[in-house]
Amino acid sequence: MFLLTAVLLTGCSTARADSLPYVDLSVRTPLPATRASQIVPLRLAVAAIISPQGNVESYSDLAEYLGRHLGRPVELVQRRTYAEVNELVASRAVDLAFVCTSAYIDGHDRFGMELLAAPEINGELVYYSELIVPASSTAQSIADLQGKTFAFTDPMSFSGRVYPSYLVKQLGYQPDEFFGRTFFTYSHDRAIEAVAAGIADGAAVDSLVLDYAIRRQPELEARLKVIHRSPAFGIPPVVVPPDLPPKQKVRLRELLLSMHEDVEGRVILSELGIDRFVPISDDAYQAIRKLISETGVMR
């Protein structure tokens, strides 16, 4: 009788399996090597000023626009840190990059990273580092954040790390000693989220990113407050590797600088909150360079 049951029980499960397709998992083939594309795409690196998914959403239209006008596909490349993006630029693994100011200074000073253009936003070529705290926080200045948890964005970020460290130093402390605990979020929008969610008691973020984030998520404004705004600094630029063929460099710069002249380009720019791209010189970043060397956190 037990035997009968066993037969019966196994019968049940095989009946269901009969109607299913069969896949032989033991038939394996090595994966083909990544296809070598005939057309070499233009590789556009975007530093993680905002999170990778945010970057894709923000920059894919721009990448597509560039690709269409250059007649070759544009591949959007991202890395977790500014340093990694700088390495890509240094090794010429990318043709064009949107980087942070301090990353530019590091790249320029180390391997001759070249400025291509800068976005003009609200008629200005500057941005600020803004110190944010949760809406419920009683902190009035950086001094009130002593012993608290502080979120840095990227180790190489000017607005997210260098500037707050500078403020702490002004108070006469080392950042590591001043805050109770610090951590890196590797992007500004994540730092904003961390403060809004109360995971960090404070963070310093790129004013452009904060404005952009608040524009897209208006409820953030109620959850945060800005307790300090830095002096104006040179806006994060668009750069190219030092040995990019001059012809290509000119073509890219022309394309960027003339974007606001056609309807399609204007739509994309306004999506990004940019008025237009303008030429910029290294002088715009002198103040930052000086502050970085004073603070010395990047060494």
Binding site: V23, D24, S26, V27, R28, T29, P30, L31
Partner: peptide, 23 residues
């Protein structure tokens, strides 16, 4: 539709899985 990463190990990827998609 290319396999980027998988957990089947060195021996390769079971191609049968790719044909299953339609069902």
């Amino acid at each position: 539709g290319e396999v980027l990463v998988h957990t089947f190990g060195d021996a390769g990827f079971p191609v049968g899985l790719l044909n299953l998609e339609a069902e």
